[in-house]
């Protein structure tokens, strides 16, 4: 089989934060692949390692985090082997990111124009005047009117939605191959959320970049993403197409997530089903499945051994002993026949 080329190819990534309290195992054997132009959603609760995974593609692991195993490949670069100086050439150019809170992600003491032009001047051969023109173009592209005037304004003079548009303009300035969106709409109000997501999809169509969408909003991933990776306690517990995840969830955690979404058409007396229990203490992760102590169908083996990945279809896999058990029983039945 010919080796297919992936835009992002993370293999068995292990990443830990070495804090005074001990080693926090943020990523435990994470493997994620993404094709060019694909939209991948990463969902999971706070601390599940979604952002850490995405940041490691840019080599942006915050101190005291350290990659301790596995490989991270992006667009043909071995990110895990590159130094700060080489990484700088990729950041903002081949891969860029928009953050959760547009209110604090822009520097308050420089104008919008200055901050957009900065990234253009850094990565392209354009001079100041050309960069200025390009910045104007970008603002128009992200749907901001009166670009000439806006370029002279400071972040505090713009609304949250506008600022997120500016962040997108900065991110797309050098036409990257991959746009990482780290909960890009969490800090915005609902109508603006929809606008921003629509804008992102529209720009994706125009520019053809891949998008890695980090979120805990399942509604967002359902409508936008080709593939979804569900993360729990520093592991990808289930991966599949949007249909796989929403219609045939296999992992108990994914099922729990889906049950905890409020539904508009259900009867009013039906209560939401939360996932009971607390997230795992990442300082002392359990040796078995990290979800075991919150899982309603927990078996003996779950507490003891980490479940391996089971392929459910070409596009769908999950790590859960229940699937293994089901497969085993199916095979036995077939054997008896």
């Amino acid at each position: 089989m010919a080796e297919e080329k992936y835009l992002v190819d993370i293999k068995n990534e292990r990443l830990s934060f070495f804090t005074p309290a001990g080693e926090v195992k943020a990523l435990n054997d994470v493997s994620i692949r993404m094709r060019e132009g694909e939209v991948l959603g990463i969902v999971g609760e706070s601390g599940s390692g979604k952002s850490v995974t995405a940041y490691s593609i840019m080599g942006l692991t915050a101190y005291p985090g350290k990659l301790i195993g596995g490989t991270v490949e992006f667009n043909g670069h071995r990110i895990d082997q590159m130094g700060e100086k080489e990484l700088r050439k990729i950041r903002g150019k081949e891969v860029s990111i928009i953050f959760q809170d547009p209110m604090t992600s822009l520097n308050p003491v420089w104008t919008i124009g200055n901050q957009i032009e900065e990234v253009i001047l850094l990565h392209t051969g354009k001079n100041r005047k050309e960069a200025h023109e390009r910045a104007k173009e970008l603002l128009t592209l992200v749907g901001i009117n009166e670009p000439e005037k806006r370029l002279k304004q400071y972040p505090h003079e713009l609304s949250g939605g506008m600022r997120q548009r500016v962040m997108i303009a900065i991110a797309l300035a050098c036409e990257p191959k991959l746009l990482i969106a780290d909960e890009p709409t969490t800090a915005l109000d609902v109508t603006i959320q929809a606008q921003i997501l629509e804008l992102m999809m529209e720009l994706k169509k125009k520019l053809g970049m891949g998008i890695m969408m980090i979120t805990h909003d399942l509604g967002v991933v359902a409508s936008m993403c080709d593939h979804i990776a569900v993360m729990y306690a520093g592991k990808v517990v289930e991966y599949g197409t949007a249909d796989d995840i929403f219609y045939e969830p296999k992992h108990e955690y994914t099922r729990g997530l889906l049950k905890s979404i409020p539904k508009l058409h259900e009867e009013a007396y039906e209560r939401l089903v939360p996932i009971e229990g607390q997230p795992v203490d990442m300082l002392n992760p359990p040796k078995g499945c990290p979800f075991a102590n919150r899982c309603n169908s927990c078996m003996k083996i779950c507490l003891d051994k980490m479940p391996p990945y089971t392929d459910i279809s070409d596009t769908h896999y999950s790590a859960c002993w229940l699937i293994q058990k089901a497969e085993f029983e199916k095979k036995q039945r077939e054997g008896e026949d």
Partner: peptide, 26 residues
Amino acid sequence: GQDYMRTARAKGVSQVKSIFKHALRN
């Protein structure tokens, strides 16, 4: 620790420049 310093890093700005341009003035 501010978010905009992270933005600067994510843009590919060098550390020296991010200190002088983005951090010092604030």
